[in-house]
Every structure is written in structure tokens, then in C-alpha cells.
Nucleic acid binder design. Sequence first.
DNA 1: ACTATCAATGTCAACGCTGACATTTTGACT
DNA 2: AGTCAAAATGTCAGCGTTGACATTGATAGT
Lengths: 362, 362
Amino acid sequence: MIEPAVRRGADSPPDSDRATTPPAPSLAPQSRATLADVGRLAGVSPKTVSRVVLGSSNVSKETRERVLSAARSLRFRPNHLARNLRHGSVTNTVAFVIGDLTNPFYFLVAAGIERELSRHGLMMILAATEDDPASEERVVETLLKQRVRALLMVPIAPDQAYLEGERQLGTPVVCIDRPAHNLIADSVVLENFRGTAGAVRELIRAGHRRIGFVCSPAELYSHQERLRGYRYALAEAGILDSSPWERLEDADGQTAEQSVHNLLAMAEPPTAIIAGNNRASAGVVRALGNRFDRVAFIGFDDFELADVAGISVIAYDPAELGRQAARLVVERLNDPIGLPQQIEIPTRLIQRGSGELRIVEP
Amino acid sequence: MIEPAVRRGADSPPDSDRATTPPAPSLAPQSRATLADVGRLAGVSPKTVSRVVLGSSNVSKETRERVLSAARSLRFRPNHLARNLRHGSVTNTVAFVIGDLTNPFYFLVAAGIERELSRHGLMMILAATEDDPASEERVVETLLKQRVRALLMVPIAPDQAYLEGERQLGTPVVCIDRPAHNLIADSVVLENFRGTAGAVRELIRAGHRRIGFVCSPAELYSHQERLRGYRYALAEAGILDSSPWERLEDADGQTAEQSVHNLLAMAEPPTAIIAGNNRASAGVVRALGNRFDRVAFIGFDDFELADVAGISVIAYDPAELGRQAARLVVERLNDPIGLPQQIEIPTRLIQRGSGELRIVEP
DNA sequence: ACTATCAATGTCAACGCTGACATTTTGACT
DNA sequence: AGTCAAAATGTCAGCGTTGACATTGATAGT
């Protein structure tokens, strides 16, 4: 932890010297100018300087100009810490609490958030929990001490009840990608169910009956929903037990490749595979090595150059997810009361021909 | 712009009512507890509460416990705005000013920054300038008003002299990917020159003589260096004029594909192409469509699934770039004096066989 | 019993700013 | 010249916290 060191200028020697050492006004000031400094130079009170800075109308033209020139020459920059403290400790910083910073998905979400927030004069502070449930509360606590204006988070801890008090104090909390547990909060999620269900239906239509599903363990809401959609669409087609083809073991993002090899080694291997997230997709692609004539493939989440490789995906707009979440934050700030909303970001199947278009004989 | 609204509790009615309406102490407090509130409940002075919160030793065990329990029951959370103001307006927030949020490169850098900063109790605030030089100073100004502790930036404006005063006040400025203009500042850049020079040498070794270079206009330091490395290695091989094969026109990230088609339409088309950045790479891959038997290809910057597609790249670790930059910030905070450093992040050629390994007859 | 010492706690002011309110100045109109 | 409203400016306090310093009370040493 870096300690804040109070840096007063070299023209503030220890007390013993003060009486004898003359001030050195010619040197550039070593500490920041305040309203009072500007006022002194312009021959007005700090309050008048404040009025100028805030753009109040009740300042004579010549005073305003004198103040502005003094401010410029002292490089005055209003202290928002002080201003915010004065105004009830309300900042214009919104925190985005994210599990795994290296997942490109979240970055695109963050980009959407940043853009929307900045349209409303709000700034985004990014905090990572390293996908560690225990650190979530600690990170959030730190942010609240900074008096962030609102919280955007990808919930990772099993329980967000610790935020209840904060919510009552009027801090908006918006959950991203999955809803909060034990906390009334807005959330923005994907159409997970519709996404996989649609993909499965498409595969069924092409004649596939044995369809594999490679994903992480279904602990997260999003993955549960995707699994549910997959099973539901299979059930529609009369396939009531899909468990032989479910491989929910890619916890670390490295196992998906192996899962595919396992599936292909079955006596009756699947003729198509769906990946439940972008990490799993990468694993599947690695395992299949573009041999989609053998096994059809559809991945959840688009990725760079998937179009070149001709890989079909269930796509959506991560930036839109962020944008909507930020929009909810702004809405809640303007109108703290109101029922919590759950927004669903649409997904759509982009068919690029990675096997899923070919009609398969049963 | 959202106005900070002072939210005092419902138990603070207008003055006219105050005398008649009894306070409702049973209701949860609608405003945040302060040191004074906690002190009142625990029967001690605010200062003693402060001591407990700061972990000072000079508090008796029983007082400490009484205070802690009072703090817990009031959900007390120290106000860092006030604390920071008291301590000379020094925060623990470091800003990362970034041009284009959607470039995955910067996100990985940001991830590296965040991780390193958090090891030192610092938080990262992300601000985008939308690649607009004019907005850089505005964005930075806003951040400085918030009294960010240090600035990490990808310089986009042609001049950073406006930060000189701030530097003198002790705010570390570290530039990323390219050095600052007219400002003494640390910077962390890539081994751009060595990267392209090495790639060209490898192609020369394989027998290539006509090597194309597809990139954005060489306005940025990084691109200039890459171009320089490309030309230098060609000159080493006796090829003194490479201009016919230079296509520095991919300003928007969309033109690279067209540039490749132009190159291939030449009377003597290049037998190999180097892309100067990841956007250009995507364009080249799109244009060539994996037909590396026709034209060899090496891209600057690795990307997801480049290994699967077997595309050779000049790679480096973006997170390392961020980590080093953050390290510099921490170093400068601990030791404000010292010569500015320029750190170079190594690049290395990863040969995956996108044509560059095949020996070409001259 | 009497001081010296030290631990535990309190008082006060200030960090920089701005609302609420007070005062002074200006100028327009009798 | 005298009155009054409006405009321009100033005074003061307090946002929540914590250093510097003061005070209290207990313990130990003579």
C-alpha cells in the first residue's frame, strides 16, 4: 500500500527556519493553487472565484476576466474532492467490478459502459476480483469507501446480501451477465436460453440427432440457462436424455479440447457440437481443427476472424450489454425508486457453414 | 451531466415541521454514518473512533470493541473523500487514458495495469478519448480535477506540453506504446524496430525479395518504428527501395483488405506480406483467405486462434506492457526524482508456417 | 505522599470548496 | 438629492476526517 505523502512545497521549511528564511515567491509554486490563492492574486474573495469557476452569472465582466487570468497563471484546477465532500460525498465515478480481466468479453462490455457513462459525465473505475468470490466483497467495500456513485458488477460471490444497506442508501447496483443473489438489483443478461435452443433447433432441422454440448460446469446463471435451452430444444425433438453428450467440465478453459476428443471417441459420437462459451469454442476449434465436415459446430459468442474461419456462432453485442447496464445506472440515479428491471440482450445465430447447414441423414 | 443531489434522510424534514415531528430513530438511517455518529453511539469522541478505524495502538481493548460494534451496527464506512482531502488531496486512483477502447490490445494492457496497481493498493480509472486528439486534454483535465495520483496514457494528441505543470507538481506520467511529445515522461514501448526487422530477415532468408508492408499511415511512433525496421532489414539485403510494396493507407482498419488486393494485382506482386498491426492483419487474412501457399504472411501482434489458423506473427505480451508501465508509476511515486526511462517490451517472431517457412526460388 | 511517566482519550483546526445569508455598490427612477 | 431594487461581492460555517496538541487518569518509582 502506497502511503499518501503530503507534499508541501520547498518554500514551507520547518518552523524553526520560518522566521529567518524569506519566502521565495519567484519560484513556481510547489503546491496546487486553491480558490483562495487565485482570489488573493485577483484581489477578490475565494467565493467570487468559486462563482467564476462555477459559471455563476452574478459576476461583473471585468472581475471574471481578472479571476480567469489569475487562475490561468496559477494553473488553478478546482479540487473535486473538496467539492464532492461539500456536496454530500457524491462523486461521478461508477465502478465496474469484473471477475476476469483477461476475458475479451468483459472488455467489450466495459467499452460499452465507458462510452455510455461518459455521455452523462460519469467516469468508470475498473476493479477485478480475479474470479475469487471471497475478494468480491473486499473489492466492493474499497470502492464504496471511495464513494463511487453506482456499482456495475458481474456477480461472482454466492451472495450479494452485503450490498443491501448500500442499496437503501441509494447506490444503484446493476448486475451484468447474471442476476444478483439475495439482493434487489437491476440486471442485464443475455438471451441465453433462446440462444442455445435456437442453435439446437437449427441442427435438428439439418438432421442431427446426437448433439454434444461442451461448457464449463453449469454453476453460473448464464451457463445454466444455456444448458436449459439446449436440453429444452432437444426435448422438443423427442430427445429426452442428452446427458451422454453433455461435457460440462471445462472449468479452467483448457479442458474443452479434451472433452471434444472424449465425445468423438464414443461408440455413437455426436454429429454436431455446441460450445457454451467463447473459451470452450476455442477448445473445440482446436480439437476439430477446422474439420467441420466431420462434426458440425456452433459456438456461443462470436470472436475475431470466426467469419474468416467460417465458424457459426450464437452472437450478441457485448458492448450493447454494457451500454444497457450503464443506461440502467443513469436511469436509477435520476429516479431511485422503481421496480428492478431485468433486461435481456438478444442473441442471434450467425450461420457461416461450419457443418450445421449440411443435411445429415438420420 | 448528472447533478449530485444531496440526499438527506426522510428524518430531516423541512424546518417548519421539525419542532412538531418527532424523530424516528427506529427507522434505518437514511444517510451514511460518520465518525461522529459512531462515536455518539459508542460514547466516545470522533477522534477515538478514527483511531480505532486507523488501527492506532493507543486505544483500550474494551473501547475498541465498543466502537467496532457501534460501527458495525451503523454500517459505518470511512469516507475516503474526506480522508484524502485532509491529506492534501492525494488519492489512490491512477488513470489510464486510452484512445480506442475497442482495440483488444489496449484491454490486455489495461488488464496488466490493473493487476500491478492493485498489488500496491491503487485503483485504475479508465478514460477514453475516442482517438480524438482534441479530447485528450479535456479528458486529462477532468481526471486531474479528480486528483488522480498518476497518469498512464497512450498519447494521441500531437503535444503533451500541457502536462508540464502537473509533472512539476509530482504527478507521474507514463506513456504507453509511444513516447510523449514535448514532455519529460517515462514511457513503455514495444521493440517495434526489431520486430519487423527480424520478420523481414526471416523472409529474406527463405528467399523472398518482394515483401509487402500493409499498415496504417505511419503517423504514430510505433508504426514509424515498424516501418523503419522493415526498410532497414530490406536495405541490409540490398533492397534499397521498398516503396512499391508499402501500403500505408489502412487508416480506418477497413482498407487493409483492399491494399492486399492492390498488391496482388501488381505486375510483380510481392511474395510475402507483413502487416503492421492487428487490424491490418485481420484485413490481410480476410483478403488472402488462408491461401498462404500463394503469399507468405506475418502479422504484427498475436491474436486469438492465430495458432489454429497457423498464422505467423510478431508477438509480445500486452499485459507485460501494462505491468511495466504500472511498475514505473509505482516507482515514480516512491521516488519522484530520477531520469525518465524508456522501457522496451520484447517482441518475438512466432513461426507457424503461414508461408514464411517455404523456400522461395528467386 | 508526591512526582514522573505513560496510556487513553479529548479538543481544535484545517484540508478546499460552496450554500445560505449579509453587506456593499450600482444605477434607475422619482 | 433621495429612495429602492438589483447586481456584485463578501462572511461564515460545515462537509468528514485526522494531525498536533492538551488533558485526564492510572501506575510506578522514590
